[in-house]
Simulated assay, not measured.
Amino acid sequence: MQQRDQAGAGRIALFDNIKGLLIILVVVGHVAHPVHNENPAISCLFDVIYLFHMPLFVFVSGLFAKHAKNERGGVNPNRIISFALLAALFQLALLLINEVDVTLESFLQFTSAPWYLLAMAYWYAAAPLLARLGWRRGMVLALALSYASGFVDLSDGLLAISRALAFLPWFAAGLYCPVESVVALKESRSRAVRATLAVAVVVSAAVVLARVLDAHAYDWFFQMVYGDNPYRALPLDLLGKTVSDVLALVLSAAVLRLVPSRPTRLATLGRRTLGIYVGHRLVRAWLTFRTPLYEQPVLLDPLWGTLMILALSAAVTVVCAAPVLTDALNRILRHRWLPEAGRERG
Rank of each mutant, 00 (worst) to 15 (best):
L251R: 12
S252P: 11
S252W: 14
A253S: 14
A253W: 11
A253K: 10
V255Q: 08
L256R: 15
L256P: 08
R257M: 14
R257C: 12
R257W: 13
L258E: 12
L258N: 12
L258D: 13
V259M: 12
P260Q: 12
P260K: 09
S261M: 06
S261W: 06
R262Y: 11
R262L: 05
R262C: 03
P263N: 07
R265T: 13
T268L: 10
T268Y: 12
L269P: 01
L269T: 04
G270H: 05
G270A: 08
G270W: 11
R272M: 07
R272Y: 08
R272T: 10
T273Q: 09
T273M: 10
T273Y: 08
L274C: 10
L274D: 09
L274Q: 11
G275A: 05
I276D: 05
I276T: 07
Y277G: 04
Y277S: 02
V278H: 03
V278A: 09
V278F: 09
H280S: 14
H280F: 13
R281F: 11
R281I: 12
R281H: 14
L282R: 12
L282D: 15
L282N: 14
L282V: 15
V283A: 14
V283H: 07
V283N: 11
V283K: 10
R284V: 14
A285S: 15
A285G: 13
W286L: 15
W286S: 14
T288E: 15
F289W: 15
F289H: 15
R290A: 13
T291N: 13
P292W: 11
P292I: 12
L293V: 13
L293W: 12
L293K: 07
Y294E: 05
Q296S: 09
Q296E: 06
Q296V: 10
Q296R: 11
Q296P: 00
P297R: 01
P297D: 04
P297T: 08
V298F: 10
L299A: 02
L299Q: 00
L300D: 00
L300F: 01
D301T: 07
D301F: 02
D301L: 04
P302T: 07
P302H: 07
G305P: 01
G305I: 06
T306Q: 03
T306Y: 05
T306D: 03
L307D: 08
M308W: 13
I309W: 03
I309F: 03
L310Q: 08
L310P: 05
L310G: 08
L310I: 14
A311F: 07
A311K: 03
S313Q: 06
S313M: 06
A314H: 06
A314Q: 05
A314S: 09
A315G: 07
A315Y: 06
A315M: 12
A315L: 15
V316G: 02
V316W: 02
V316T: 09
T317N: 03
T317L: 07
T317W: 01
T317E: 02
V319E: 06
C320D: 04
C320P: 00
C320E: 02
A321L: 02
A322F: 01
A322K: 02
V324R: 09
L325A: 04
L325K: 02
L325C: 04
T326E: 03
D327N: 02
A328Q: 04
L329H: 00
L329S: 01
N330D: 13
N330E: 13
R331Q: 08
R331H: 03
I332S: 04
I332D: 00
L333H: 04
L333C: 00
L333E: 03
R334T: 06
R334L: 06
H335M: 02
H335S: 00
